[in-house]
């Protein structure tokens, strides 16, 4: 089997995990999670250098921070299937006494999580702090972060974006999930973001775009290109064009599935479009 096929199988299984987690508790955020399945798969299966024997300090490994914590189902699925915790634990998602809280947290000690997120707009600051500590520690590994596009409406991001460029935080790759949707509708109708490439560049970032954010090969190529741009005095931004709800036809191109679970019938339809590959939990 080709490596691309293996990664695509991984993505398909992650989509199943997302649907099944959200369906089981009739809550959670499938839309953004599905749109980022390829990104997380690329990051954890191909790009990042990390230790599954989790250590909060993360010295001498790459770090990832999820700022838009509501897409926890994709994060949990990829962490579990990358070896951070047992895959079967996905069946505790959002249930009482679980380490898999609705939004990711360090509080329950889930391996792979280094900060709580969910209240939006905070992750880039945390990632910058971690990146600065890596520099102080003479640790050449990189820090990655992911942000929703709607999330950029939070002002703290722009404090962070200004800081990172002014202070040459060039060991940071921040990706914006550009799906154009947020809870109340499209970002264009709620509060238009304008030209994000121009905005990040005006703030002094090196920006690259991944037009096919749901094509695993394109995502890997883009992330690899981003890595080559680190260490050159500028923080790196990836504008990742994705489709919310990708891979489940009735969930695509709409904000309707931002935070809504499928019913039994919808689950079956979604799963039939994403046949089991690595084995369900």
């Amino acid at each position: 089997m080709s490596q691309t096929q293996q990664l695509e199988d991984f993505v398909t299984q992650v989509r199943r995990d997302i649907l099944r987690q959200v369906h089981a508790v009739n809550s959670g955020h499938p839309g953004g999670s599905l749109g980022c399945a390829e990104f997380f798969t690329a990051l954890y299966q191909k790009i990042m250098d990390y230790d599954t024997n989790f250590n909060m300090d993360g010295k001498n490994e790459d770090l990832f921070f999820l700022s838009n914590g509501h897409i926890s189902p994709v994060f949990y699925s990829v962490l579990a299937r990358s070896g951070f915790f047992p895959v079967k634990e996905l069946n505790t998602f959002r249930k009482i006494d679980s380490r898999l809280q609705g939004h990711p947290t360090t509080h329950e000690g889930l391996p792979g999580i280094r900060v709580a997120s969910g209240s939006l707009g905070q992750g880039m600051s945390v990632a910058i702090g971690a990146a600065q500590t890596k520099k102080l520690n003479k640790d050449s590994h990189l820090v990655y972060s992911l942000h929703g596009d709607g999330e950029l409406q939070e002002g703290q991001n722009w404090e962070a974006i200004m800081y990172a460029a002014a202070n040459k935080v060039d060991n940071l790759i921040s990706t914006v999930d550009l799906n154009g949707q947020q809870i109340d509708g499209s970002t264009d109708t709620v509060l238009p973001l304008g030209n994000l490439k121009d905005k990040f560049e005006a703030f002094g970032w090196d920006v690259l775009e991944i037009q096919k954010g749901n094509d695993i090969e394109a995502v890997i190529k883009g992330l690899e290109e981003a890595k080559t741009r680190t260490g050159k005095g500028k923080p790196v931004c990836i504008l990742l064009h994705t489709v919310m709800g990708n891979g489940v036809d009735f969930m695509m191109h709409t904000h309707a599935w931002h935070g809504k679970a499928p019913n039994d019938e919808q689950l079956e339809t979604g799963l039939s479009q994403n046949p089991e590959t690595l084995g369900d939990y």
């Binding site: 300090d57 900060v115 992750g123 600051s125 945390v126 702090g129 971690a130 500590t133 102080l136 640790d139």
Partner: peptide
């Protein structure tokens, strides 16, 4: 960090990762 307290608090949280 400039007049940007929210970013300062987030950065401080991140800086602990790695032992600061």
């Amino acid at each position: 960090v400039g007049i940007a307290e929210a970013n300062m608090m987030g950065m401080a949280a991140g800086m602990t990762i790695g032992g600061k």
